[in-house]
């Protein structure tokens, strides 16, 4: 499985046609304590770069964008009761949604892990 990253600090892990999306450890560290998140509806069609979810800290709400286009197949319902997972395990248990890719070509425009790491260090 390959993981890609966006300049907006989302990660996307590819498993065939299906991909899992979340926000990066860097993103959660910048947001502070996450208290709530609003997930897309299963079956929703997302476009690359479009608003997919909202993650809230006490004093801020941030939009999460979809790294790719596709149809939402599953969402991480556990986050509704335990938003702290986004802080504790952003790149594993804190995943947001799974999406069926409509155009795997879009992945070419994303960072790989090394490139994202360099991008964050330069911030």
């Amino acid at each position: 499985m390959t993981t890609y990253f966006t300049k907006d600090h989302e990660w996307i892990r590819i498993d065939g046609d299906l991909a899992t999306v979340g926000i990066t450890d860097y993103a959660q560290s910048q947001l502070g304590d996450v208290v709530y998140c609003e997930l897309p509806e299963v079956g929703a069609t997302l476009t690359k770069g479009g608003e997919a979810a909202v993650v809230e800290s006490v004093k801020a709400a941030s939009d999460v964008f979809s790294p790719v286009s596709g149809v939402v197949q599953e969402v991480n319902a556990a986050l509704t009761d335990e938003p702290a997972k986004i802080n504790e395990a952003p790149e594993s248990d804190g995943w947001f949604f799974k999406i069926v890719l409509s155009d795997s070509g879009e992945l070419a425009e994303l960072f790989d892990e090394a490139a994202y790491k360099a991008f964050v260090e330069a911030l």
């Binding site: 989302e10 993103a27 947001l31 304590d33 993650v55 004093k59 801020a60």
Partner: peptide
Amino acid sequence: MAMNTQGRPTAP
């Protein structure tokens, strides 16, 4: 994501 970092520490 649209990183909104107005989230100053809110837990003492």
